[in-house]
Design a protein around this nucleic acid. Structure first.
Length: 267
DNA sequence: CTCCAGGCGCCTT
DNA sequence: AAGGCGCATGGA
């Protein structure tokens, strides 16, 4: 049993904020899922985080990396305090961006398009059951579009399959994207099938740790129109540029707080 | 029954 | 560049 202390982390907020789709949660608030390829049970009481892993090789630093625990969030909180519109977001203090695997994030957010969190979680489970764990790009590539449809992907099946084939045939491409600055990374990743501007931002934020990404989905679109544009009809693109210019390297974190705020109706 | 969900690709203006 | 439409699926 691994135990670490942290006074500015909220496991439940982080897990329930729609970033990851592969964890189950029991009635006691214990989360089960894979962290860095290791099956882990996670719980938190106050500032104490507990992790029960299958292998003793799982260390505290793996947890710190995964949950971005070594980041100082006071700069983010300063943004919220300085903008009267965003003060309510401080109620989500301790929510952190999970540093996900690139391929998993890419695949998940292809599945996420025009979909809802509950169904995305269901599709994740179906994939894990069928492939004995979340499938690599090679596994998806070696599978068939029809199989993906049977697992519930619907019209996204050919998109995921084509992207998986590309990644499997170009094993270094994700590592290459990781090394690129955000603007160039967007240009590259948006060329994959099924990846438009929104999914690209999600993948780059959650899977490539590009913290200046500002994904604009229907929730962000609504809440941003309400908070900053007097409910006028402003396009996704305008909102995306607005968020990026306004919050810079904190845009990704601000977006996550706005997203969860909107979904839980606290703004 | 219709409407909606962490949108995208393709087609018109 | 900007806007409209169809698309699989399942829950509300």
């Amino acid at each position: 049993m691994l135990k670490i202390r942290h006074d500015d982390f909220n496991l439940a907020l982080t897990m329930d904020s729609g970033q990851v789709f592969g964890f189950s949660k029991d009635s006691e608030g214990v989360y089960e899922g894979m962290v860095g390829g290791v099956f882990v049970r996670l719980s938190q009481k106050e500032g104490n985080i507990q992790a029960a892993a299958k292998t003793p090789a799982f260390r505290a630093q793996h947890l710190r990396d995964y949950f971005d625990l070594d980041r100082d969030l006071n700069g983010l909180y300063r943004i919220f305090k300085a903008d009267s519109i965003l003060v309510p977001a401080l109620k989500l203090k301790g929510l952190r961006l999970i540093r996900q695997d690139s391929w998993e994030a890419l695949a998940c957010f292809i599945i996420s398009s025009n979909n809802n969190v509950k169904r995305i979680q269901g599709i994740w489970q179906n994939l894990c059951r069928h492939f004995k764990g979340f499938p690599s790009a090679s596994q998806v590539s070696a599978s068939h579009e029809r199989v993906l449809r049977e697992l519930g992907l619907g019209y996204r099946a050919p998109f995921l399959h084509a992207t998986a084939r590309f990644v499997a045939n170009n094993p270094v491409c994700l590592g290459h994207i990781r090394q690129l600055p955000y603007p160039e990374a967007i240009e590259k990743i948006i060329c994959f099938p099924g990846i438009g501007p929104k999914v690209a931002d999600c993948a780059l934020l959650y899977g490539f740790q590009k913290y200046e990404a500002f994904p604009v989905d229907v929730w962000i679109l609504r809440v941003m129109r309400k908070l900053y544009f007097k409910n006028r009809k402003v396009s996704e693109k305008k909102i995306q540029v607005f968020g990026q210019k306004r919050w810079g390297l904190q845009a990704g974190y601000v977006q996550q707080y706005l997203f969860h705020s909107a979904r839980t109706n606290i703004l």
